[in-house]
């Protein structure tokens, strides 16, 4: 093992990192766009409830409040699932780069121990 071969090996190992990152971050963005759409929908329903309260006072219940609340909770839950997927994707990207970095740091440590690389 020498510095040149470690560098060559590392470059080979990370050759796909660009594509992986582009893909993962693209997927995160697509999911985020979906999430924003869902959020807009449940916020609109929430606004309906609050508009009714403003017009009729807080003691009167919106005729469809139960139904609206149910739908809002459903959409929030869907958003949460989407967000959990995004977290997994972000953690995957982090893991991929951390794995390569860790391997490189370990190899650098070995080269330094062998005196093949200045500390």
């Amino acid at each position: 093992m020498d510095p040149s071969s470690v560098l060559d090996q590392t470059i080979q190992d990370v050759s796909n990192l660009q594509a992986e990152f582009t893909h993962i971050l693209g997927e995160i963005r697509a999911s985020d766009t979906q999430l924003l759409d869902q959020r807009k929908k449940y916020m609109q329903k929430d606004s309906q409830i609050h508009k009714f309260i403003r017009q009729h006072g807080s003691l009167q219940e919106h005729p469809k409040e139960q139904e609206l609340s149910e739908k809002i909770r459903e959409k929030m839950s869907a958003c949460k699932n989407l967000q959990e997927q995004k977290c997994t994707m972000a953690n995957t990207a982090l893991y991929l780069v951390a794995k390569h970095l860790s391997r490189l740091e370990k190899n650098i440590g070995l080269l330094e121990e062998d005196g093949l690389l200045a500390p």
Binding site: F21, T22, L25, G26, I28, R29, D32, T33, L35, L36
Partner: peptide, 12 residues
């Protein structure tokens, strides 16, 4: 800016 652009809020 692929990292920033992964946020739909940033894009908006």
């Amino acid at each position: 800016r692929i990292f920033s652009l992964s946020s739909a809020i940033f894009v908006k």
